[in-house]
């Protein structure tokens, strides 16, 4: 294990967790539940998403790694559409919409009691607005992606390359295909757990899953780690393939904006049984798991390796 890389990673994590936890604490000292906070206050607390970016910059200052914008060991801020890399930007824009709509369709199909054709009315959403909501979410996601960029510049721009290197899954390490797959999976799981734990203060006040579930907040934190691992695999895939953190930032922002029409027809208050109440979200995880497996396979394919090498050489 490369001790220098491990040390750098630990410095980054100390900054990232320290800054974000401090921000979450200072902005919500009374630990008010997420649902009880006003929308503007929720956005204000969410500015803590800029902590990983700040940590990335501070770590590079401390470790004197330099601020190379693109290429190997860089901040991965460059954008290139050459060699078919534009496709990963398109994937980043559309994939969250596809998997959210698909998982919502499956939820309605298997938990029919949740279907409420008038639910959007109770949310005070105009039907015309609901129909164009995915487009609005995508546009606002792409243009207003600064918060998601703040996270991705840290997690995908610094932590994941270090983890891949530490586990021996980077391009420079010559391992057999099986060992490389194992190393990549281990790196992604470790990255997902770290990312999930970083969200813990928010999960503890009910962000993402609320507060009304058995095993609160530990089950929520574990579920967040699982979600972050699956999401992290997809984000790492688009980052490595495009050689830039921008597609990941866009994908993260679009995902956070929740571009789904069917969301306006799923009424969680209609859950009659505990299975529906606590397990209706399982379809989102299932769809994400399938996509994560596809992304991992594509990430480790020989064609992909050649492309990554080409990107680095270019």
């Amino acid at each position: 294990m490369n001790k220098t890389e491990l040390k750098r990673l630990l410095i980054y994590l100390a900054f990232s967790f320290g800054l974000a936890y401090a921000w979450f604490f200072v902005t919500n000292m009374k630990f008010v539940k997420w649902q009880d906070l006003s929308n503007p206050m929720q956005s204000f607390i969410a500015l803590g998403m800029l902590a990983p970016l700040l940590s990335h910059i501070l770590t590079r200052l401390v470790t004197k790694e330099g601020f190379k914008l693109s290429g190997k060991d860089s901040m991965m801020l460059g954008i290139s559409f050459k060699n078919g890399k534009w496709i990963f930007f398109l994937i980043a824009i559309l994939l969250p919409w596809i998997y959210l709509e698909l998982s919502n369709a499956l939820t309605i199909l298997f938990f029919r009691e949740l279907y409420d054709p008038e639910y959007y009315v109770s949310l005070e959403i105009d039907k015309r607005l609901l129909n164009i909501f995915p487009l609005a979410a995508i546009v606002s996601g792409v243009f207003g992606s600064f918060a998601a960029f703040g996270e991705e510049a840290g997690w995908r721009g610094y932590m994941m390359p270090k983890l891949l290197k530490l586990f021996g899954a980077d391009e420079d390490t010559s391992l057999s295909k099986g060992k490389k797959l194992r190393a990549t999976i281990l790196a992604c799981i470790t990255g997902g757990i770290i990312w999930g734990l970083w969200h813990a203060p928010l999960t503890c006040i009910g962000h993402n899953f609320g507060t009304d579930y058995p095993g609160f907040p530990f089950v929520g934190i574990a579920r967040m780690c699982l979600f972050c691992t699956l999401m992290g695999i997809m984000l790492t895939f688009v980052t490595v393939k495009s050689g830039s953190v921008w597609p990941a930032a866009i994908m993260h922002a679009v995902n956070n904006a929740g571009p789904s029409i069917l969301n306006g027809y799923i009424n969680p208050e209609r859950a009659g049984t505990w299975i529906t109440k606590y397990f209706s979200g399982i379809w989102q995880m299932a769809v994400m798991l399938i996509l994560a497996i596809i992304c991992l396979t594509l990430l480790l394919s020989d064609k992909s390796k050649i492309r990554v090498k080409e990107c680095i050489e270019n």
Partner: peptide, 29 residues
């Protein structure tokens, strides 16, 4: 353009965080 848009959005979020529930001001924000 992207950088200034991001800064403007950050300022907007900061400004809106401590607004009361007066409709005119909230709508303006």
């Amino acid at each position: 353009t992207y950088t200034y848009l991001s800064v403007y959005m950050i300022l907007n979020v900061i400004s809106a965080a401590y607004l009361g529930e007066i409709e005119t001001v909230t709508n303006s924000s």
